Amino acid sequence: LELTLRVGDKTWHFKDVDEEFVRHLEELLKRGAHEREIEEIIREWLR
């Protein structure tokens, strides 16, 4: 999967994204996660 995600003024483009990561992001967005929380999840995933 490829994913382009825009949060606030930042845009990330990922290739070979894990479906579990996408589901986790979807859940965060559904519950109205704040920009900082989403950025933290992305940084963790990139490690």
Rank of each mutant, 00 (worst) to 15 (best):
I38G: 01
L29Y: 07
R6N: 11
V7E: 01
E2N: 15
L1Y: 15
E26V: 14
L5Q: 00
W12F: 09
I38F: 09
K30L: 11
E20A: 14
V22A: 04
R23N: 10
E37K: 06
R6V: 15
E37P: 02
K15V: 07
E44T: 07
E2M: 07
R23M: 09
E19N: 07
W12G: 00
R23S: 08
W12Y: 15
E39K: 04
E39A: 06
E44H: 10
R36Y: 13
L1V: 07
L3V: 11
D9M: 05
L28Q: 08
L3D: 01
R23T: 07
V17K: 12
L28P: 01
H24A: 09
V17C: 05
R23W: 08
K15R: 12
E44D: 09
E26H: 14
A33T: 12
W12E: 00
L28I: 06
I42C: 02
T11M: 09
T11N: 03
L29K: 04
E35Y: 12
D18T: 12
L5A: 01
G8M: 03
E40S: 12
R43D: 07
L5K: 00
H13I: 10
A33H: 09
H24I: 11
G32D: 04
V7C: 08
I42W: 10
K15E: 05
L25S: 01
R36S: 14
G8A: 03
L25V: 08
L5Y: 02
H34R: 10
D9N: 10
H24E: 10
V22K: 04
R43E: 10
D16M: 15
F14D: 00
R47V: 11
K30R: 14
I41C: 06
L28A: 10
E37Q: 10
V22E: 01
H13T: 11
L28D: 03
E26I: 14
E44A: 12
V7S: 02
L46V: 09
L5V: 15
E2W: 14
H13D: 01
E39P: 01
V17A: 12
D18L: 02
E37G: 03
E26Q: 15
F21H: 02
A33W: 13
E19A: 15
L28E: 06
W45E: 02
L3A: 04
L1F: 15
E27S: 13
V17G: 15
G32L: 04
E40M: 11
E19I: 15
R36H: 14
E44Q: 10
E2C: 07
A33C: 11
D16L: 15
R47S: 08
L46Q: 10
E40F: 10
I42Q: 01
E40C: 08
E40Q: 12
I41S: 08
T4F: 08
L29I: 15
L1G: 15
L46F: 13
K10N: 08
E27Q: 13
K30S: 11
R43C: 05
T4S: 08
R31W: 10
E37A: 07
R6L: 10
T11Y: 07
W45H: 08
E26K: 14
K10S: 06
K10W: 07
E35R: 06
F14H: 00
E27T: 14
T4N: 06
H24F: 11
G32K: 04
E37D: 11
D9H: 05
E19T: 12
L29V: 14
R6I: 14
D16P: 12
F21S: 04
A33R: 08
G8L: 03
L28W: 05
R43L: 13
T11G: 01
R36D: 14
W12P: 00
I42E: 01
G8N: 05
L46M: 12
H34K: 14
K15L: 06
V17W: 03
E37V: 08
H13K: 08
D18R: 04
I41G: 03
R31Q: 13
A33S: 08
H13F: 11
F21C: 02
G8P: 00
L25P: 00
R31N: 13
G8I: 01
E19Y: 15
R23I: 07
V17T: 15
D16K: 14
I38H: 01
H13V: 13
E35S: 09
E2V: 07
R43S: 09
L28C: 04
W45R: 04
L46G: 04
E37S: 05
F21V: 03
F14N: 00
R31G: 12
D18K: 06
E2K: 07
I41K: 12
F21R: 03
E39D: 10
H24G: 11
E20V: 14
V7D: 01
R43Y: 13
V7Q: 01
K30Y: 13
V17H: 08
T4R: 13
I38P: 01
D16F: 15
K10L: 06
R47Q: 09
E27I: 10
E39T: 11
T4C: 13
E44K: 11
A33V: 14
T11H: 15
D16S: 15
D18A: 09
G8Q: 02
I42Y: 07
L5N: 00
D16A: 15
R6Y: 04
E20Y: 13
